[in-house]
């Protein structure tokens, strides 16, 4: 950086320029710091707060399944938005659970779609002893939220396999896209759920907005539900958005939908799955 130092020297030669020089120097020193923000809507994020989905999946891959047989057990919760105190308590509670493989969060990590909120949430959830995996919620899509989420977490639609289970996570926040007929991406869902390998006992779909909600693109309800019910071995769909626990089969095809507690409810569910569609729900208060 010889030009830069020459520039500083030129500035420093004039005593009035000293101020400008000092301000620039201080500015460049602090530019890596959290305080420096070009806009609350910026999508700039430090390395420690980027690509978290990939990093958590990597961690999960290296971690042997704590449950035996074809069983898998994970914590299911949603809507961490603006519940920071609860996030702290949640982390402490989950760390006391035994045989939990990971935490699944059904969207609305942030409330305003701001990258700093995602950092605040991660600052608490990074203390979890197990990896956590998220799906995007409607609040995460406000303002520059889509890119903020992509930079901090990663893809909006993705899938992974763990503990004899294929998990398919999909963006279903159709209203945020003005019901444009492309969210959720039904062809992608069909492909992601197609032909599970012999090691896969069951498939689980997780999205934020459930298809029986007014924020789901109405023109896609039927193709989406159809895609899930015709795919092999789909155990259930997990959702958030409603901020409270519920379980039901709203469609005639018998597909089960489970909705998560939000962080503010100070409760979460421990889901244990085995066989093709067998599962057990344990509610934990914290």
């Amino acid at each position: 950086m010889p030009q830069l130092s020459t520039f500083y020297h030129t500035l420093l030669r004039g005593r009035a320029g000293l101020l400008t020089g000092a301000a620039l120097l201080l500015g460049s020193l602090l530019s890596g710091c959290d305080l420096i923000e070009f806009s609350p809507n910026e999508t700039r994020t430090p390395e420690a707060y980027s690509d978290l989905t990939r990093k958590n999946l990597e961690r999960l891959r290296q971690q042997p399944n704590p449950s035996g047989g074809d069983t898998v057990r994970f914590v299911f919760v949603g809507d961490s938005q603006r519940f920071y105190e609860e996030a702290e308590a949640f982390t402490q509670s989950v760390n006391q659970q035994r045989n939990v493989a990971f935490v699944a969060i059904s969207g609305d990590i942030s409330d305003f779609g701001l990258i700093r909120e995602m950092r605040w949430v991660h600052d608490r959830l990074k203390k979890l002893n197990v990896p956590y995996l998220t799906v995007i919620g409607n609040h995460d899509l406000v303002a520059n939220g889509r890119e903020a989420y992509q930079k901090v977490y990663g893809p909006l639609n993705y899938s992974f396999e763990y503990g004899h289970t294929r998990f398919v996570l999909v963006d279903t926040n159709g209203r945020e896209y003005g019901f444009n007929g492309r969210v959720p991406d039904v062809p992608w869902v069909q492909q992601a759920l197609a032909s599970p390998g012999p090691g896969i006992s069951r498939q689980v779909v997780m999205s934020h907005v459930p298809p029986h909600d007014l924020d789901f693109d109405p023109q896609l309800v039927s193709p989406y539900v159809q895609a899930l019910s015709t795919a092999p071995r789909v155990a259930f769909e997990l959702n958030g958005h409603k901020h409270d626990f519920s379980i039901g089969q709203p469609y005639e095809n018998g597909l089960t939908f489970i909705n998560s507690y939000s962080f503010e409810k100070r409760q979460y569910v421990v889901l244990t799955l085995w066989g093709e569609k067998e599962f057990k729900l344990d509610t934990v208060q914290y």
Binding site: F38, S39, N41, T43, R44, N144, E147
Partner: peptide, 8 residues
């Protein structure tokens, strides 16, 4: 001004 590097 914030460039597109830090925004959609």
């Amino acid at each position: 001004y914030v460039p597109s590097k830090y925004s959609i």
